[in-house]
Every structure is written in structure tokens, then in C-alpha cells.
Design a protein around this nucleic acid. Structure first.
Lengths: 117, 117
DNA sequence: CGTTCATATGAACACTTTATCATATATTAT
DNA sequence: ATAATATATGATAAAGTGTTCATATGAACG
């Protein structure tokens, strides 16, 4: 253990703090990571993602499934799209959304594990 | 494929929607999950968690390390504590925080994988 | 005991975010 | 073309969030 020092001017545990500082990811990555989790941090979007785990769905399906207005779903899908969490394809008047990759599944899974303790 | 129906009154793809509906976790779990990710969705808290991946730290250490005021750190630690993401122990005037369990590490890791694509 | 240091808490304010409403775009059918 | 359907977009209002400031608590020590 290193010597405690005054908090407002010196590190209390300077050695430890320096070690940790060197292990921290780049500021930008930490910021992006927070942005990503922010996207997961809304129950409407979580529901959309869970629905898309099972099947490709059009906006209308999602709207009915969740009991959320089409407009709200559309807005949230845009957020998910901007974070590359979902992709879409057009088929006539419908636009079908699906998960962009398998990270979504893992992230949701890890989160659910924590909840279920 | 099932027959498309009018969106505002019937499911567009009723069969699919029903299948998905049965696979959805309980409303409450989805809500809790969103709450959990909301906690990860702030860069100050993300930084705190990453710091705690490496070592147990007191509030002052964290404050210095991140260049964030003691008050702000304290407020955020409370949020993390309320979500059972961190635990703490007192040692004299210091209070040392550490990660509550290993889910944090996995969640952060999965998220970072997505970012790094 | 009173002081100092480490941390916590409450209120206030600025900033975001989300749903809603009205409207626009795009596709298909008549 | 016109109408109808599916989805997207922009503005607005309401709710939520994070930081700061001022202050409180709690421990150690002369």
C-alpha cells in the first residue's frame, strides 16, 4: 500500500491510480461505449431488440406486438439503425428490420444474467 | 408467409408476431434490463466501472483519476451501488469501491466488441 | 471537544430524451 | 393521376438526467 496523501491536491493512492490510468481505454472508446449502452437503456428499444432476436419484423408488426405507436417505433428504429444494431430491407410497402449482428444477443444475454441474480 | 392485413387493425404478419410474442421475456424483466443498461449509458459511470476493473479505489482516487468532481463521482457511485454493480467497504475516512461481480466485466467486454468492429 | 479530511446528500439548473401530433415520402393499386 | 397504405420526419411539450453548489455526516486526531 502506498501512503495516503491529501485528496484535493494529491492522489490518495498514487501508485494504484497510475496503474489504473494506464489500463484505461481511450477516452473516445469509453464515450462510444456509453453511447452504445444508452441505446440499450430504453425499454421500448429493448423490447424491439428482443422481438428481433426471434424474427425479422416490419414496423407495423413491431408496433402491434409492443402496443406502441407506429411513430414511436419508427423513431426508435432510427436510433437502433444509427448505432448499427439493426438493419433493414424494403419489400413493397413494408420495411423489414432485423438484428445487424450477434453482439446484440450477447449483450442482452449478459445483462439478463445480471438481472436474474 | 401469412397474408398481409391492414396494419392499423390486424397484424401484418400475424403468425410471426404470435411466435415472437410467446418468446418475449416478462414485461418487468425487460424494464429492469433497460434500467440496467441505462446505468451503463453514461460516460462518467463507464469510466468508473473500467477503473474498478483494475483495482479497488476510494472516491478520491476515482475523482482524481477521471478529472471529475468528488460530488459528481459520489452521485454516480450511488447509482452504481443501487444497481448492484459496485460494492464498498469503509477503511477509516476512506470508502473503497469495487465491482460487485463479474457480469460487469462481460457486459463491458461485449459492448466494446461491438464498438471495435 | 472542536477541527480536519473523506464522502454523501439535497436542491437547482441546464441539457437530453421520448412520445405525440401533423405532415411528408414512397410504394402499390385503381 | 388519384387514392390508399406503410413508414419516416420535424416540431413541440413533458419527463428525466447529470453536474454544480451548499451543506451534512462520519471518522480520526490533537
Amino acid at each position: 500500500m502506498d501512503k495516503p496523501e491529501r485528496c484535493d491536491f494529491l492522489y490518495v493512492h498514487q501508485e494504484t491510480v497510475e496503474k489504473v490510468q494506464n489500463s484505461m481505454p481511450a477516452e473516445e472508446d469509453l464515450y462510444d461505449l456509453a453511447e452504445l449502452f444508452k441505446v440499450f437503456g430504453d425499454s421500448t428499444r429493448i423490447k424491439i431488440l428482443y422481438a428481433l432476436l426471434e424474427a425479422e419484423l416490419c414496423v407495423c408488426d413491431i408496433s402491434q406486438l409492443l402496443g406502441v405507436s407506429q411513430t414511436a417505433v419508427s423513431h426508435q428504429l432510427r436510433v437502433l439503425k444509427n448505432s448499427s444494431l439493426v438493419k433493414y430491407r424494403r419489400e413493397g410497402k413494408n420495411i423489414f428490420y432485423s438484428l445487424a449482428d450477434d453482439h446484440v444477443r450477447s449483450v442482452l444475454g449478459q445483462g439478463m444474467d445480471h438481472i436474474k441474480e
